[in-house]
Simulated assay, not measured.
Amino acid sequence: MRSRFTADDIAAAGAALARHALELPELAAAGTVAAYVSVGREPGTRALLDALRARGVRVLLPVLLPDNDLDWSAYEGAGHLVRAGRGLLEPDGERLGPEAVLAARTVLLPGLAVDRHGVRLGRGGGSYDRVLARLDAAGAAPALVVLLYDGEVLDEVPGEAHDRPVQAAVTPSGVHRFGRTG
């Protein structure tokens, strides 16, 4: 489905997604948010990242490590993003370490789909599975929110025992809730 989207479709979806996401109580109350920079045909995150930063939220962005784990760095604006491996855009600032995500009150996750139980289908690299396991091991319980397109909230997706459900999905048409809030 994503392969049919044009750059204009992606930009429009990203703007709508940002409007809905910014209304989430999970983001309104967050001093620190872990997010990501969308690439390719993923739902656009740039408008959301810039709006959060303008609100004074500390936005942490991932930096992919050689073992597919994620380090984190603060988002300082689009001018501080550099092209990295696998076509990813990463912040060029100080690396804060994989544990920096523990400071996040909300974690915005990429995905391909989510089901009515909040089970998120990722891209298969395992990077965010490691992040979620790290959060669990530390006893951290940030709100987990996946950013998707309309049509990617499904009745059921394949899940595994280690999967941690998300509380919400934000799509261009609105917010979908699956469990606890804020």
Rank of each mutant, 00 (worst) to 15 (best):
R2H: 03
S3R: 14
R4N: 08
T6H: 06
T6V: 14
A7Q: 14
I10A: 01
I10H: 00
A11R: 15
G14Q: 09
L17R: 00
A18K: 06
A21V: 11
A21K: 05
P25V: 03
A28M: 04
A28T: 06
A28R: 13
A34Y: 09
S38K: 01
G44I: 13
A47H: 11
L49S: 04
A51I: 01
R53P: 00
A54N: 00
A54P: 00
G56D: 11
R58I: 11
L61G: 06
L61T: 04
D69F: 07
L70R: 12
W72A: 02
S73T: 14
A78I: 05
L81C: 04
G87V: 11
E90Q: 14
P91I: 11
P91R: 12
D92P: 08
L96Y: 08
G97D: 11
P98W: 05
V101H: 09
L102P: 02
L102V: 04
R105E: 15
V107N: 01
P110E: 01
R116E: 14
R116T: 10
H117Y: 02
V119I: 14
L121F: 06
G122S: 06
G125L: 03
R134I: 01
D136G: 11
D136E: 10
A138G: 08
A138K: 08
A140I: 09
P142T: 01
P142L: 00
Y149P: 01
E152K: 04
V153N: 07
V153T: 08
D155I: 13
V157Q: 10
G159C: 02
E160S: 13
A161D: 13
A161R: 15
H162L: 12
T171G: 04
R180W: 00
